[in-house]
Structure formats: structure tokens, C-alpha cells
Design a protein around this nucleic acid. Structure first.
Length: 491
RNA sequence: GGCCCCAUCGUCUAGUCUGGCCUAGGACACCAGGUUUUCAUCCUGGCAACAGGGGUUCGAAUCCCCUUGGGGUCACCA
């Protein structure tokens, strides 16, 4: 792009629901494109569907964008010179332009009977495009009937026999013949303008230079290009992003799984991971870079590197990436991140944590860091530490082993004798203990683990001991010893 | 069905524009082995793809055509 025409892109969601994964990816690519070209990223709210709009949706969308770290330069709560940023606030311009189109003859009133329910709808044949006789109605007559109260919608009078060339930044040249474009509705019977109409007016008013949007909009493009022509305006550059597909290979929808960004947030995916994953859907930096952050994305973002084919949303890969980010998070920060989930279990109080609690939290974070892929998995991995464990089958077996009771008693006694808790060099301590009792280390360690956590997996014993604390640990060991096979201890 | 888009491992992709360096590279998943007191992490190895057919060319994953397959869209929703 020429330097004198700075890039201006926009993300234009309608506040009729939470931010969808597909929308987030569109926002991300627009954001990256703007940042890459030192341009402006605009957020515009398409709130023209009064029926379905909600304040709650708007809040949720802004929230999700911010959570992902996608900051907008102009838009709600950011302001800007090219506002308003709520579509509904441009109503005056929209209505005036509707009038103008009628006057200039590129729009016409289509007088409808008592609410023709959509001209077509179902599978339609080749030439049954929406063209209506009112197209050629005398303007004066048209006005007269309107004033007489006859119901009508306003349609775009698609010129016949024209070629419409869309130079798509991702797909290249896409050609349409205007004869294949229907006389689309620009103004509803209640006088409100429709999406295709206002979208163009707003993009023009806001000086949008590049429109990057989902492929489902590709077929809208010829309609919009025709409108730009009628308006005597130069259309922006278009680029249609490949669709995000569900496991079934179709456009991602609620049927296939979670589709809202908030769903992933609630399940405890780090925003960096979701962002990274989204960037990988239809884009790649090179032949080997998989894990990268926003800065790197911006540095490398290029429409030429965006794919044409749709991409299946693979949650396994998202989970892996998420685990990757968690493992690279420093313990104190990870502690902070998983805290909300642990609080939800009632394991930590609200408010500032006192030092002992903070220490416990960090030990907990360290214990799960390499064992979870989402923050949401932390509680299940840590339950044993905060609640009395219920030994599982394998743990029971370990506890029932010959001599388990005696070995546990011996371990408890040895632990009690140690000045430090847990022993400074746990491995050496365990070795010595095993040697003293003349058994293999595993004979002691397994039941110990079972007694402490109720399962045979989990973090290293030293960490378990540290997290539990001397008192609780000893109590668990003794309690388990009392229940373990005591008779066998003698043998 | 009309129109439009697309087509490399099961999945995300590199390579395609600017044919040869591709006996097609990386990642996820899966399988096997190793490290680890356990689980996990980590390391090593393995499995696995150019949809099919015609051209063009000395040479095609790369260019052209056809077929097949998949998707999008056909609202007074955006």
C-alpha cells in the first residue's frame, strides 16, 4: 500500500451473542494486519438488528477481545475521529442514502403483498433470480403508491450484463456476472436498512481500506461492489479468510463443540495459547514455527501466507499448545493464574493471601505445572492435597502389600526424626531408610505415595510432603499404617 | 439444484506464484523405546499424504484441462 493511504481495517461483530471462535480469528487477522502495516484497527458494532441485540453480548465481545489481547485503536470505549462506531448511530446517513438511491434510480421500491415470506428460500433453479416488475415502475407512480401507504421493500436495481471483478487478496481474481446477482433488499418494509447496504456505507464513511472477513461473505462482495459503483466510490481491497471447520468438516457451529471464546476461557485455556492456536488456523510463519506470540505473528503476518482451504479446529492441538504455555509459565505466575479455579473449590480464601497460604499455593502450582493442559484441570490434580483422599484400586493394592503397615510406621518414625521437613535430600533419605529396613526403595515409596495421595501417580514425594506439611503428612501415613496389612509386617 | 470457493499425512501445515534442491519437511494425535521411585515432563525412533485422469515439459506436488470430492451461499440475519 502507498504510504499516503494508511491501512485501516475493521472488525465488525453484531452484538447478538458471545464472541465466536471464527469471529475471534477474523479479529485476530485484522488486528495482525493492522499492526503489521502500522495501520489502524477499528472496532465497529453492527447493532442494526434491534430484535437480537443485547448489552450483555456487547460486553462479552469486548471482554473476549481484551482477554485475547486484541486492542482496537478506534471503537467503543476507545473513541476515534471516524465515528460513530455503533452502526445504529449512522442511521441518518443510511436513511438519506436510501432516499438518494431512490432518487438516482439505482434503488427501487418493490411493492409487496401482505408480507411475501422471502422470494424463494428453498433450493432455487438457475434463472429464478429475484427480479421484480416494480424495477421498471415509473418513479412518480412508485412514490405515489408509497405515499398512499402500500407496503414495500427497497431493492437494489442490479444493472444487467455487467462483469464484476473482485480482486481478493487471498483468492486472487473472482469474477461474477451481474446477471447472477439478485436484486437484494437494501431497505426493509419497516424502512430499516440491511447489512449489505449499511456495511458499505459505514466502511466508506470510516475510510476502511481493507476488508478481511470470513469466506462466507465472499458471495456478498459483488452486491457490495455494485453499491460502491452506484455511490461513485472506490471499493476497498477485499480478502476472504478460509472458514474454520468443526470435526465434521463443516463450518464450525455449536453442534461440533464449544464455539465461544468464553467457553475456552472458562475451561482455563491461557489466552496466549488460544491466540497462538487461532493464528495457526489458516496461517503459518514458515515450515517449522508452531509456538509463537503476538509480536512474532505481527512481524510475519502476510496475506500471501494465508491459506485458501478451510481449517478443522483440532482441540487436541489446542490442548497441547495450552500445556506448552503452562509449562513455560514461571511458578509464581502460574500460581496466580490457577488461583481462581482453586478458590472455586474453597481451598483458598478470597483477598490477599497470607504468606503460608501463598507458599502452599505456589507449591501446588509447581506440583501441577507439568501435569495439566488447562488451568481448569488443576483442581482434580490437587484434590488429594486439600481433601482427605479416597484411595483408588491401585493404591489399595499397594497399601495391602505384605509389610506395608510396618514400613509405613518406620517411614513415619524416620520422618519425625528428621530435623528438616521434608528431608533436604529426599532421595538419599529414602535410600538410607530402605537400606536400613533391608527392602527395595519401591516397597516403601509406593505405599507411602498411596497413603499420602490415595493414588500411585502424581508429583515427586518430596513435593507431596512439602505441600501437605509435616503434621498432615504424618497423620496420613499413620492412619494408613493402622489400616494396612499389619500382620504381614511381622514377616 | 444455481452461483462461488477449495483440494499435500487422521488433523494443522511447509513446499505451488518464480516447475528440477521433494526418495515431499515440521507439528498435533497415535505406536514403540529411553530417562524418571510413580504420573507427567523430556529425549529417541516409527506409522502416515501430493484425490483421479489427461495434457504441456528433458523434468510436475508445483502450469493447463476434465472428472471426482468437500465447503460456502442462495433471508425484509449479520
Amino acid at each position: 500500500m502507498a504510504p499516503e493511504s494508511p491501512v485501516r481495517v475493521r472488525f465488525a461483530p453484531s452484538p447478538t451473542g458471545r464472541l465466536h471462535i471464527g469471529g475471534a480469528r477474523t479479529a485476530l487477522f485484522n488486528w495482525a494486519f493492522a499492526r503489521r502495516h502500522r495501520g489502524v484497527f477499528v472496532l465497529r458494532i453492527e447493532d442494526t438488528d434491534a430484535e437480537r441485540n443485547s448489552e450483555e453480548s456487547l460486553r462479552s465481545i469486548l471482554d473476549s477481545l481484551r482477554w485475547l489481547g486484541l486492542d482496537w485503536d478506534e471503537g467503543p470505549e476507545a473513541g476515534g475521529e471516524r465515528g460513530p462506531y455503533f452502526q445504529s448511530q449512522r442511521r441518518e446517513l443510511h436513511l438519506q442514502t436510501l432516499e438518494r438511491g431512490l432518487d438516482e434510480g439505482w434503488l427501487y421500491r418493490h411493492f409487496t403483498g401482505p408480507r411475501e415470506p422471502g422470494a424463494g428460500g428453498e433450493a432455487r433453479g438457475p434463472r429464478e433470480l429475484a427480479r421484480f416488475p416494480d424495477r421498471d415502475l415509473d418513479p412518480a407512480e412508485s412514490r405515489r403508491r408509497a405515499e398512499a401507504g402500500a407496503p414495500f421493500v427497497i431493492r437494489f436495481k442490479v444493472p444487467l450484463g455487467e462483469e464484476i471483478l473482485v480482486e481478493d487478496g487471498i483468492r486472487g481474481a473472482v469474477r461474477y456476472r451481474s446477471d447472477e446477482v439478485e436484486d437484494w433488499v437494501a431497505g426493509r418494509s419497516d424502512a430499516s436498512p440491511t447489512y449489505n447496504f449499511v456495511c458499505v456505507l459505514d466502511d466508506a464513511a470510516m475510510g476502511i481500506t481493507h476488508v478481511l472477513r470470513g469466506e462466507e461473505h465472499l458471495v456478498n462482495t459483488p452486491k457490495q461492489v455494485l453499491l460502491y459503483r452506484a455511490l461513485g466510490l472506490e471499493p476497498p481491497a477485499f480478502a476472504h479468510l478460509p472458514l474454520i471447520l468443526g470435526q465434521d468438516g463443516r463450518k464450525l457451529s455449536k453442534r461440533t463443540g464449544d464455539t465461544a471464546v468464553e467457553d475456552y476461557r472458562e475451561r482455563g485455556f491461557p489466552p496466549e495459547a488460544l491466540l497462538n492456536f487461532l493464528a495457526l488456523l489458516g496461517f503459518s510463519i514458515d515450515d517449522h514455527t508452531t509456538v509463537f506470540g503476538r509480536e512474532e505473528l505481527v512481524r510475519h503476518f502476510d496475506l500471501a501466507r494465508v491459506n485458501k482451504a478451510g481449517a478443522v479446529f483440532d482441540e487436541d492441538k489446542l490442548r497441547w499448545l495450552s500445556g506448552e504455555y503452562i509449562r513455560s509459565t514461571p511458578v509464581p505466575e502460574l500460581a496466580e493464574r490457577i488461583l481462581p479455579w482453586l478458590r472455586r473449590e474453597g481451598w483458598f480464601p478470597e483477598g490477599e493471601l497470607p504468606d503460608p497460604e501463598r507458599d502452599r499455593l505456589e507449591r501446588a502450582a509447581a506440583a501441577v505445572r507439568e501435569r495439566i493442559q488447562t488451568y481448569g484441570e488443576a483442581p482434580e490434580r490437587l484434590r488429594w492435597a486439600f481433601e482427605t483422599p479416597d484411595p483408588d484400586a491401585r493404591a489399595l493394592q499397594a497399601l495391602g502389600q505384605e509389610g506395608a503397615a510396618g514400613l509405613l510406621e518406620a517411614a513415619a518414625a524416620a520422618l519425625e526424626r528428621e530435623a528438616a521437613f521434608p528431608p533436604a535430600d529426599f532421595d538419599a533419605w529414602a535410600r538410607d531408610l530402605a537400606a536400613g529396613l533391608e527392602v527395595a526403595a519401591g516397597r516403601i515409596l509406593k505405599p507411602l505415595r498411596a497413603a499420602l495421595t490415595g493414588t500411585l501417580g502424581g508429583p515427586p514425594l518430596a513435593e507431596i510432603l512439602g505441600l501437605l506439611g509435616r503434621e498432615e503428612a504424618l497423620e496420613r501415613i499413620r492412619r494408613a499404617a493402622a489400616r494396612a496389612g499389619g500382620a504381614a509386617a511381622a514377616s
